[in-house]
Design a binder for these strands. Sequence first.
DNA 1: CTCCTGTCTAGATGATTATCTAATCAGCCG
DNA 2: CGGCTGATTAGATAATCATCTAGACAGGAG
Lengths: 118, 118
Amino acid sequence: MSKRLVVLDTPANQVACCPPIAEASLDAAQATDLARMFKALGDPIRLRLLSRITSAPEGEICVCDLTGEDFDVTGPTISHHLKTLREAGLIEGERRGTWVYYRPVVANLRQLAALLAI
Amino acid sequence: MSKRLVVLDTPANQVACCPPIAEASLDAAQATDLARMFKALGDPIRLRLLSRITSAPEGEICVCDLTGEDFDVTGPTISHHLKTLREAGLIEGERRGTWVYYRPVVANLRQLAALLAI
DNA sequence: CTCCTGTCTAGATGATTATCTAATCAGCCG
DNA sequence: CGGCTGATTAGATAATCATCTAGACAGGAG
């Protein structure tokens, strides 16, 4: 087991890459991958979770700092949304002892940004 | 009637604005507006439609150039997706005679891009 | 006016999703 | 070990969504 940080199945979601959406018409396969990521962003709770994760001072945040607080949904629901973000390739998670930490997958977030840079 | 281009109800969707998601935690209200736009991008067909619209040489494209072609869905389904993009504030449409033309709402697309620029 | 073509709306249906409660798993501590 | 806390999974349910067919509406052409 060489990888240091991998926990919590993260389907290695690699997408082609990077020209803005206006440069060339997306083909169906690229569109499917990209749409999965955008869909994951298409929920207010997930957007706020991602915002918290990306703005965490240490580059990552403990799930214990996300649950229950000013999100008025239950723990399992938070967990479900984190899983959605994770499966979309936007964040990745790691358990260290008792707690689980999440951090952004910067490359994929940047790719989405680049795509929309008209 | 002073506006030159408005047709097809476009709910004036103005969202706060512009710091990247990592700078400050999104509040619930902003998140709801932004999530609506991301959700509209969360479908492969809509992404490809938007790609076609944003890459149209004249800055706009006729619906007649979008229907039926290499999207294997029916006309009404295309129309429904265009409506979703329109109501999200990502595109706007105008009828000129027989045909309807769509063009991107660049400011809102850029806002999404800025949000993801980590 | 009447037909034809392009686009949209209406209504129905099957699939997906957000959320909950209950139960399970992982790691710590006495 | 046995119990405790943090986090996830399982299963159920209500809501939303993508898609279709059928029908309506807009505008041009005979």
